[in-house]
Amino acid sequence: MAARGLRLGRLLVIGVPMGWLLLFFLAPFLIDFKISLSEVRLAIPPYAPLLEWADGKLVALHLHLTNYRYLFTDSLYVSAYGYSLKVAAVSTVLCLLLGYPMALGIARAEPARRNLLLMLVILPFWTSFLLRVYAWMGLLRNNGLINNLLLWAGVIDTPIQMMQTDFAVYLGIVYSYLPFMILPLYTNLEKHDGTLLEAAADLGAKPLAAFLRVTLPLSVPGILAGALLVFIPVVGEYVIPTLLGRPDQLMIGRVLSDEFFANRDWPVASAVAMLMLLLLVAPIVAFQRLQNNASEAR
């Protein structure tokens, strides 16, 4: 009896997240995949059905691979994918450079102050993400707070063009995604055993050497987790480059929305999304492998 109850409990515990994944990840993925193989048409919904039924029997199966082939006939898609990956990689490195010292600082702070510092990291989430990006627009624009302040102080004569630049996009992305780097890093760093550093010092390691040879290697899983949490969403980022960036910085998110909204071509839009997912699988697998190696090494 007891074993049975345990099994039921386990089933529930594993079943709920499984069901969640099936419903909110696998099902949309399959729907998306299905649409990517169909043909565009003017109707509700705006694509042709894959399967043709008559009297409850399957009559025909229409698969269109042309949507995928199309993505390679035009340099637009390849260059947008490339640019998205570049932006995501640079942003991840910037977040790491900024986030690591902050996470380390919080982890090494007095326990009583830690909660306050963590609160400060999480605090921006209390406001809508969109509003915060708009706030940056208010700060950065030619007629905005920063330029007006500099003009008033006499530091500059003409406003500095900050909106619609690479700088604004990276600023927006790093600002928005920094907490996703700090939090997993902090959870990792906070668990480190302080006596290891004392031992390193006793054995003659300077603080920098102790950091490089003890803290840093131990924190690799945290770095990887943080990097994944930043890299993956930034590849598909749509809002920040649209609001802060130049129109010629074409990321894949914007191409996707153009296909969906402007071209009314759901099949090609779905193909773009599928390919983006494929592109992300490679780094995820690589990260996973690194993480496994790191945990085995311990």
Partner: peptide
Amino acid sequence: QEYTRELTRVWTRFKTG
């Protein structure tokens, strides 16, 4: 639909310069 696709392509080239 065909013209719209060509148009969107031209438009993207315009946006990206």
